[in-house]
């Protein structure tokens, strides 16, 4: 659905985006991570046909962002960094205005935004002047604006940054719902737990270059090693011997627990659990969660020396 090939942008001699290759199929969310000024907004602006790529191509649902710009804009919903609402309008007028720009009638716009306003807990504020909205409400309204034309592609820049936890959960649920409806989403964020929660793919961009792009689990594994499992037990028999299983390595142990690094959990775990259960009074067996934050810092610190991880 979104495909870029060698997408590059120069501002005079400054290289803002450097030969980016992305592939996001329908029904997936790609989270674009990176420090401030890494090139995330420039990439999004190229994908919305506002900035013209200096080199390379980008296609949205088969339409080229340069040659088919109006078609691309018609099928993309964008939540921009600055929400840019018109303070003297109310939400209804504002959303009808944007609906009309996307070719919707007033009735169609209303039938589109009313459920969204309800979903985001804003139904009672439809007639309120936007200048009186709180920051979080503005962000939600900007998100509704991005969804007014029922776009097949959504580009969302920090969608929950100004929201209270409850609103952020609402928005994240809405994003998940969109994914399940086969929408393609690119989400730029600095919130790594949000990224971890929503992402199918992660792309880390630094100095305009994608230093890492893969599915979330692959990234964690590649950067932070094989998954680690911990088994806890009531007590360890004195004559108990560690089972030797191919691809399973003990990395830490004490009287009450053992941590294993397992290369292929799907294959090794059933054998390991069976072996442990026969000798030990097991209390629990679980995977120690690795954080995206660690993977992100690892990637940024190594500046993508290893290239794309397989």
């Amino acid at each position: 659905m979104i495909e870029t090939l060698g997408l590059t942008k120069y501002f005079d001699s400054f290289l803002a985006v450097d030969h980016i290759n992305l592939h996001v199929p329908a029904g997936e969310i790609l989270v674009l991570l990176g420090p401030n000024g890494a090139g995330k907004t420039t990439t999004v602006r190229m994908l919305t046909s506002i900035l013209r790529p200096s080199e390379g191509t980008a296609r949205i649902a088969g339409f080229d962002v340069v040659t088919d710009a109006p078609k691309v804009r018609a099928m993309v919903g964008v939540l921009t960094e600055h929400h840019g609402l018109y303070g003297r309008m109310n939400a209804e007028e504002y959303l009808i205005f944007y609906g009309e720009l996307y070719g919707l009638t007033k009735k169609e716009s209303i039938s589109r935004f009313e459920p969204l306003m309800g979903q985001f807990g804003m139904a009672e504020y439809t007639k309120k002047r936007l200048g009186e909205y709180s920051k979080g409400m503005r962000q939600k309204l900007a998100l509704i604006r991005a969804m007014i034309n029922n776009p097949s592609v959504l580009l969302l820049d920090e969608p929950t940054s100004a929201m209270d936890p409850e609103s952020a959960i609402m928005v994240r649920n809405a994003i998940r719902e969109l994914r399940s409806n086969e929408r393609t989403i690119i989400l730029c964020t600095h919130n790594l737990s949000e990224a971890e929660e929503l992402a199918d793919q992660i792309a880390i961009i630094q100095h305009g270059k994608i230093i890492l792009n893969d599915y979330l689990n692959n990234i964690k594994r590649s950067l932070l090693g094989n998954p680690i499992y911990e088994v806890t037990f009531a007590n360890r028999p004195k004559d108990w011997k560690t089972p030797i299983i191919d691809g399973v390595k003990i990395i830490n142990q004490n009287e009450k627990s053992i941590q294993f690094e397992i290369k292929d959990p799907q294959k090794a775990n059933p054998i390991l659990i069976q072996s442990l259960a026969s000798d030990l009074p097991i209390l629990s067996f679980f995977e120690i969660q690795k954080k995206l934050e660690d993977a992100y810092l690892e990637a940024i610190n190594h500046n993508g020396d290893w290239g794309k991880l397989e």
Binding site: I50, R73, H82, H83, G84, L85, Y98, L101, Y102, R145
Partner: peptide, 11 residues
């Protein structure tokens, strides 16, 4: 900041 949403439309 209201120009960018406008530029993103099919106008």
């Amino acid at each position: 900041g209201s120009i960018e949403p406008l530029l993103n439309t099919p106008l």
